[in-house]
Nucleic acid binder design. Sequence first.
DNA 1: TCTGGGGTCCTAGGACCC
DNA 2: TCTGGGGTCCTAGGACCC
Length: 458
Amino acid sequence: MLHLDLDAFFAAVEQRDKPSLRGKPVVVGGTGGRGVVATASYEARQYGVRSAMSTREARARCPHAAYLGGRFHAYRETSVAVMGLLRSVSPLVEPLSLDEAFIDLEAANDPLLPDLRTETVRAFAEHLRTRVQEVTGGLTASVGAATSKFVAKVASDLDKPDGLVVVEPGGELDLLRPMKVSVIPGVGPATNERLRRAGLHTVADLERVSEEELVRLLGKAHGAGLHALAHARDDRPVVAEREAKSVSVEGTYETDLTDRRLMEGLLTRQAGEVAERLRKHGLSGRTVTIKVRLHDFTTISRSSTLGEPTDSTGTVARTARGLLADVDTSGGVRLLGVGVSGLADWVQDDLFGATAGSTDDDPDAADLPTELPDTGRRRSTWGAGQDVEHDEHGRGWVWGAGRGVVTVRFETATTGPGPVRSFPADDPALHLWRPDEPDEPDRTDDTDQARAARDENP
DNA sequence: TCTGGGGTCCTAGGACCC
DNA sequence: TCTGGGGTCCTAGGACCC
């Protein structure tokens, strides 16, 4: 089993496409007041910037980094190239996200892999890493190879970035025993704390505990799963095709919402996006769920299961608004979301043509507000690395900004070194470049990582 | 102005059915 | 008249992953 992980993927794509960002700290993620970091380049990690950290904290730790909202199309294109390469090696490829995949080498049909001896696999994996660089225009990948998914994934983490670790068959437990329990997938903060209280810190500690005890501590599925992994027992197969089980859209707002009508309007808009994605993928679902995160971060969900599957904007929207009626939002709401689950992979036939386009009416939605309150703050100031377009000079990106002046470098990896020009910060000819238009709606409360995840797995 | 977005899986309780 | 035992479906919440 092989696990391949592209190093600091989103940031690496930015550095590839904007040569002058190379060697500099780059942070990709939400750039708003409530954004979090999706990916930090290794230069930014030196300052303690990490994924999932709030962008606010990242800016405090590394103010001179380039903070980018991300360019999903570029990430997806690069990912498609890598996954295509992997599938040329073996039909059994399981992408975990845009930048990560398992490959079953036993199913491989590559002449460069005549057998699965350690040295053969090592040489093959090195060759694969080189090929990844070729197809991506220079991105590096870290690879792990072992007898199971679990150990392969642990291995790929050991020599990051740009590393390769092959674990010999039989050597799995020697590798795992000294490691912290948190290396095991499924051990997050909550499980880690439970295990810590039980005096279990390392895999070796876990190995000495009976399955019954772990089940008592963590519940049936989790306990049994952990017991197996702690003994390096993992026979999970590579699953190349997965069916989507739910489709959802959510958004966190810059300031807490208090206006119920506005919440209904936003929910209605989200319902439309969910329904559109259902239709685009030929799906429909029976259960509509809303998610509401209150001002204090408590999260509430309400769901309703319909008599038959739907992909209709009106049905999803009306159901969602009805569910909101059940929630006390008086303290303010920071996040709203709508999802549909219980998916059927068939579209209900419209035998009588009565509801053409399967978008039924939703007259109540017509006059609902969707305008977010104006916080009165200036639209985000120009920042290094941002993609911009100038009416006269074309596409470029911000090299520097300050004191009312923006310096733009009109250079990409394909256009090569270009001119550098300065403009007044309020020059109307200069705007943010939005590569996702008109493909997708402009949503400033949405990160490109979210778009990436949505597109990959509807 | 701590704490994104899109997912998956699990658990537990209640309704309901045989 | 003092209380079964399964099974399925639904709902709400939580943990976790990238």
